[in-house]
C-alpha cells in the first residue's frame, strides 16, 4: 500500500509499555503492507529533540502524533491515515 509516510518512530526507553506499543504499530504497518521505515527509538536525546515528555510516543516523519499511552491498532491506523 502506498502512503506519503516515509518514517515512523516509536519512542520509549525500553519499558514493557513501549515494547507493546512497538508491537502494535509493527502489526498495523505489516498488515497494511506499508512501505515505510519503522524504528524503535530509545535515545533520550531524540525524545528531547522531538519534545516528547511522556512515553511511549509515536512520531510520523518527525512530528509527534501520540504520547503517553499504549495505542490500540485502530488508533494507530487512524494516525497513519489508513483508518
Amino acid at each position: 500500500m502506498e502512503t506519503t509516510i516515509t518514517k515512523i518512530e516509536v519512542l520509549g526507553p525500553g519499558c514493557p509499555r513501549c515494547q507493546e506499543t512497538y508491537r502494535v504499530v509493527r502489526h498495523v504497518v505489516e498488515t497494511a503492507g506499508l512501505a515505510c521505515q519503522l524504528v524503535k527509538v530509545e535515545s533520550y536525546q531524540r525524545m528531547a529533540q522531538l519534545g516528547v515528555m511522556a512515553t511511549p510516543a509515536i512520531a510520523i516523519d518527525g512530528a509527534v502524533v501520540m504520547t503517553g499511552h499504549i495505542p490500540k491498532a485502530e488508533e494507530v491506523r487512524e494516525l497513519l491515515g489508513i483508518g
Binding site: G12, P13, C15, R17, C18, Y44, M47, A48, G51, V52, M53, A54, T55, G68
Partner: peptide, 17 residues
C-alpha cells in the same frame, strides 16, 4: 499529572530545558 516512572527522564529534560 499522568506520569509513568519510565518517562521520568524525558519529562525531566522537557522541564529543565
Amino acid at each position: 499529572t499522568p506520569f509513568c516512572s519510565c518517562s521520568a527522564v524525558p519529562l525531566f529534560i522537557g522541564f529543565v530545558t
